[in-house]
C-alpha cells in the first residue's frame, strides 16, 4: 500500500507541477496572447481543481486498491483480483503458464516488496501480483514454475 501511495503521489505531483507551470506561463506577459477572455479571468481555476483531484485520488486510490487486490493460488489455478475504479478478475490455470518472473523496482526494494508476474502464451492471460514480500514472491515463483513444468505440454 505504501508503494502505491508513493507511486500515486509522484505521478500526480508531476501533473500538478506541469499544470501550475503552464498556468504561470500563460498568465505572464510572454505567455499566450490569444487567450480568450473568459479563460484569462479564471486562470487559476484549472490548476487548483487538478491539485485537489490529485490529492484526493492519491489519498483514496492506494487504500482502495489494496483492499480490492487479492490473489489465491489453488492446486491448478492462479486467481487474481485487481483494480479500484474498475475491477478485473483473472484466472490462469497453472498448466498453461509459460514463464514466471519476479521483479523489484527501486521503490519496491526500499520497501522489501516484489511483484510476481505470471505469463501465458496470451498477453490477455498474463497476471501480476504486486506488493508481495520478497521471500514469498520468490518461493511462489519457484513453486509455480516447477508445477507448470511437471504439468507442461505445449501450453498453448
Amino acid at each position: 500500500m505504501a508503494h502505491w501511495a508513493i507511486d500515486y503521489l509522484m505521478a500526480w505531483g508531476l501533473v500538478i507541477a506541469v499544470v501550475w507551470g503552464a498556468a504561470a506561463w500563460a498568465g505572464s506577459d510572454a505567455g499566450w496572447s490569444g487567450m480568450p477572455g473568459w479563460l484569462a479571468d479564471r486562470l487559476w481555476w484549472p490548476p487548483i481543481a487538478i491539485t485537489a483531484l490529485g490529492l484526493l485520488v492519491s489519498a483514496v486510490a492506494p487504500v482502495w486498491r489494496y483492499r480490492v487486490h487479492r490473489w489465491e493460488i489453488s492446486a491448478d489455478v492462479v486467481y487474481t483480483r485487481t483494480g479500484w475504479f474498475s475491477r478485473e478478475w483473472l484466472l490462469v490455470p497453472v498448466g498453461r503458464i509459460q514463464t514466471v518472473d519476479t521483479g523489484q523496482g527501486p521503490l519496491e526494494r526500499l520497501l522489501g516488496l516484489a511483484t510476481l508476474e505470471i505469463n501465458t502464451a496470451s498477453h490477455a492471460g498474463s497476471s501480476l501480483v504486486a506488493g508481495l514480500p520478497v521471500d514469498l514472491a520468490t518461493r511462489l515463483a519457484e513453486q509455480l514454475a516447477h508445477r507448470a513444468h511437471t504439468l507442461g505440454d505445449d501450453a498453448t
Binding site: 474498475s86 475491477r87 483473472l90 490462469v92 490455470p93 501450453a155
Partner: peptide, 15 residues
C-alpha cells in the same frame, strides 16, 4: 481446449 485463461473486467458503471 485453446483457452489459456479468463479475464473478467467490470468498471464502476458496468457494475
Amino acid at each position: 481446449r485453446a483457452v489459456v485463461g479468463w479475464r473478467l473486467r467490470q468498471t464502476l458503471f458496468q457494475r
